[in-house]
Every structure is written in structure tokens, then in C-alpha cells.
């Protein structure tokens, strides 16, 4: 199952703002499913993707309750990606840019991610088979 290969992604978009975030999560899901290791460098607004305080909400337009709506949170999707990595015996190394976290007050995150910076991006990129930057606009 473990391919021994590693993909590094650098992402920047905040949750609920861009299709880029969803595409990045789809890529991570597929890469882990294929047995690859994945590094993520979450830069700027992307550090909010893993914030623990995210909560699903009801949808008053559709008239659905919180339970009925089952609104996605990016932190739950990412927690599920960590579980997938564990199940497939591969590593998901999620690095939240520390300074980006500080300026956003986004330090309370789910289990899994670690704090880092440009040095860590450089290190994981050097040991990866490929690095893909998905910037914001």
C-alpha cells in the first residue's frame, strides 16, 4: 500500500472562500488513498482550515436543522484525512505557518497539524518527489 512517494502542497486560501481549498483536499485524499505520504504547508489564510472552533450550522433558507444540514467543516474533513493516513500507514504532515497563526489568533487547532515556517517548507520540499504551490489571489 505504501508507495514510498511524497507530495508536498503549499496552500494559502482561507476556508469557505475558494474552490482551491476543496481541490487541495481532494488531492490530499487521493494521494493518501493511493498510499503516498503528503506534506501540507498551510500559509496565510489556510491556517484557518484546521481551527478547532469551527461548528456546523443550520440552514434557515432550506429550513434544515444542524443535524439535517450536516454542514461540512474543513477541520472535520482534515481530521478525516489524518484518519485515512493512519489507516493506510502513510504520513500526513500538516504544517501551519506559525506567524500566520499568531496574527489570526488561529492557534487552537485539531489534533494532527504542527507549527512551522518557511524552513519547514524547504525541508519537506527537499525530501519530496514533487511540490505543488496552490496560491491565493
Amino acid at each position: 500500500m505504501n508507495s514510498g512517494k511524497t507530495i508536498t502542497l503549499a496552500i494559502m486560501d482561507a476556508p469557505y472562500e475558494s474552490a482551491n481549498s476543496t481541490t487541495a483536499l481532494r488531492l490530499i485524499h487521493t494521494a493518501l488513498s493511493q498510499g503516498n505520504h503528503v506534506n501540507v504547508f498551510a500559509y496565510e489564510g489556510a491556517v484557518n482550515l484546521t481551527m478547532k472552533a469551527q461548528q456546523p450550522h443550520p440552514n434557515p433558507v432550506k429550513g434544515t436543522s444542524v443535524e439535517e444540514e450536516a454542514h461540512p467543516t474543513t477541520k472535520d474533513w482534515i481530521a478525516s484525512l489524518f484518519a485515512l493516513a493512519e489507516k493506510n500507514n502513510v504520513k500526513l504532515d500538516w504544517i501551519n505557518c506559525g506567524l500566520c497563526v499568531d496574527e489570526r489568533g488561529a492557534g487552537d487547532w485539531i489534533d494532527g497539524p504542527r507549527r512551522g515556517g518557511p524552513k519547514e517548507l524547504y525541508e519537506v520540499s527537499q525530501s519530496s518527489d514533487v511540490t505543488l504551490v496552490i496560491p491565493t489571489k
Partner: peptide, 14 residues
């Protein structure tokens, strides 16, 4: 933020 990141990467040896 990208100029800053580039400078930091250079400092990290890139």
C-alpha cells in the same frame, strides 16, 4: 507575504 517567504527561504538555505 511571498517576498517575505522568499527571503525566509533564502535564509533557510534555499
Amino acid at each position: 507575504t511571498i517576498l517575505w517567504l522568499s527571503h525566509a527561504l533564502k535564509n533557510a538555505g534555499a
